[in-house]
């Protein structure tokens, strides 16, 4: 016997455990790989410390410099829209907060659901725009790999199924909710093995960048 409810319970049960385990192990392997490689000792006399400029870059690199904004406005604006939209839907939607609370005990106030729905719809449109851009812009088309399209598909599937589940446009609900959870689990599973790792390593990368330049007296 396998129906939509059994599917939902499978995604909420064993599959969730598997996904979390692969995600946690994979991500820690990834981060350990980075830190164990480390950096060679730097003998050059520094102009300034590393920590502060490193942390500053972690924050400031979220905002494009005016020149980049002028030359790649689509990348900057659409990238922002969908990242912020994704984060709002991920972190400020009540069912997600309940999930986080059940795992960590931490919780915070949620945004009203219709607002989340609107944000999600905008995110979906922005994601479609990024795909079109990736397939048409010469640079992005040239540097894109199969992985880029796979990751796009998974991210889009997560947002789309989430939105369909919220708007209850697919029946039965356990089926679409299960598909949403499964899509999120697939995202968790592939996260440590694809560019999705940047969610965690971009902080490290930005810090290394900011520290290296900051040491030389430039806030990068």
């Amino acid at each position: 016997m396998s129906g939509s409810m059994e599917f939902l319970l499978w995604t909420k049960g064993p599959m969730f455990d598997i996904a979390i385990a692969i995600f946690a192990i994979g991500l820690l392997v990834r981060i350990a790989e980075i830190f164990m490689l480390g950096r060679a000792k730097n003998f050059a006399e520094p102009r300034a410390g590393e920590w502060k400029p490193g942390l500053t870059t972690v924050v400031t690199r979220s905002f494009a410099d005016p020149g980049t904004f002028k030359r790649a406005p689509f990348n900057v604006v659409v990238g922002w829209i969908w990242h912020v939209g994704f984060l709002i839907a991920l972190l400020l939607f009540l069912p997600h907060i309940e999930l986080i609370k059940s795992l960590t005990g931490l919780s915070w106030p949620a945004l009203p659901n219709p607002l989340i729905s609107l944000v999600t719809a905008v995110t979906l449109i922005a994601l479609i725009a990024t795909l079109v851009h990736r397939m048409t812009h010469p640079v992005k088309r040239r540097i894109s790999t199969l992985e880029d399209y796979l990751v796009w598909t998974v991210v889009f599937a997560v947002v789309l199924t989430g939105w369909l589940a919220y708007t209850r446009m697919v029946n039965p609900y356990p089926l679409i909710l299960g598909m949403h959870i499964l899509a999120a689990e697939i995202m968790l599973i592939i996260l440590p093995f694809t560019k999705l790792t940047h969610i965690f390593t971009a902080v490290i990368a930005r810090w290394y960048n900011g520290a290296a330049y900051g040491r030389k007296g430039v806030q990068s």
């Binding site: 980075i34 950096r39 980049t68 790649a72 992005k140 790792t197 940047h198 990368a205 960048n209």
Partner: peptide
């Protein structure tokens, strides 16, 4: 080294470096 690993781990193929 660590930075190289962090950098390649993080690249999302956005193409902004080209600009």
């Amino acid at each position: 080294d660590g930075p190289v690993a962090a950098f390649f781990s993080s690249c999302v193929h956005c193409g902004i470096c080209a600009s």
